[in-house]
Amino acid sequence: MDSEEALSALSALAHPTRLEAFRLLVRNAPDGLATGELVDASGLTQSTFSTHLAVLVAAGLVVSRRQGRQMIQRAEMARLRALMVFLAMDCCEGRPELCRPLIAELDCC
């Protein structure tokens, strides 16, 4: 991941509705959720939520697939991983002790 891609992802997540929707999708990975379930969880109208979803899709954080009559939204876990690695990349440059607490927290899950 380069800086431009990281900025796009971070910008997409820098809104409460989009962040919560993405976190909900991560909790439901790898299966994802129907768009209607996300709309219901957000409390927004379908059209307003669609705008937020489009931002997440454009940033590569969410992928959509049709399943019968529904659109299923999934968190793109590889993209999340790439973003996390990008953010932590400089951390271990000669000082791995800086990343150990982060890795320990992630290891609990």
Rank of each mutant, 00 (worst) to 15 (best):
V57R: 05
D31A: 10
E5A: 15
A21Y: 03
R79H: 15
L24Y: 07
L38D: 00
A34T: 03
I72P: 00
D107H: 11
A6Q: 04
M77L: 15
L33H: 01
L44T: 05
A59M: 04
E76V: 04
A54I: 01
L61M: 12
T17F: 05
A29H: 08
G68K: 01
A54T: 04
L13H: 05
R65W: 12
D40E: 13
C109H: 15
D90M: 03
R18T: 04
L102Y: 07
V39T: 04
A58Y: 14
M89P: 02
S11P: 01
P16R: 06
C91G: 15
A34S: 13
A41H: 02
A12Q: 01
R95A: 15
L61R: 02
R18D: 02
A29I: 06
R74D: 08
A41K: 01
R95P: 02
L38V: 00
R100M: 13
G36L: 06
E5F: 04
H15L: 05
A58F: 12
G60M: 05
T48W: 09
T51Y: 10
L56C: 12
M89G: 13
M84E: 14
G36E: 06
L38R: 00
F86Y: 15
E76P: 00
D31H: 07
C99T: 14
L83H: 09
C92Y: 07
G60D: 05
V62I: 06
G32I: 01
Q46T: 08
T48M: 10
R66H: 11
V26K: 04
R100G: 06
M89F: 15
S3D: 11
R95S: 14
R81A: 15
F86L: 10
R65M: 13
R66P: 02
L87V: 04
D2P: 00
L83Y: 11
F49I: 01
L83S: 04
E4Y: 08
E37M: 05
L53P: 00
A6H: 02
P96W: 05
A78V: 06
Q67A: 14
L56D: 09
L83W: 06
S3N: 08
M77F: 14
L13G: 06
F49S: 02
C92G: 12
E105C: 12
A78T: 03
E4G: 07
F86C: 13
F86S: 12
M71W: 10
D2V: 09
D40Y: 03
R79L: 11
E5S: 09
I72V: 10
E20T: 02
C92F: 05
Q67G: 14
L24A: 14
R100I: 09
P30L: 12
R81Q: 14
D107V: 12
G43C: 10
D31L: 03
V62D: 02
E20S: 09
L80S: 06
T17G: 00
L102M: 11
G60A: 03
H52E: 05
Q73T: 02
F22V: 04
L24N: 06
E97L: 10
D31I: 02
S3F: 11
V85G: 09
R79I: 14
Q70H: 12
A21E: 03
C108A: 15
F22P: 01
A78G: 13
V55D: 08
S47N: 15
E93G: 09
R69K: 09
F49C: 01
M1F: 07
D31P: 00
A59C: 11
D90N: 08
L13C: 07
A21T: 04
R74Y: 06
G60T: 01
V26A: 14
S8V: 06
A82V: 02
P96E: 07
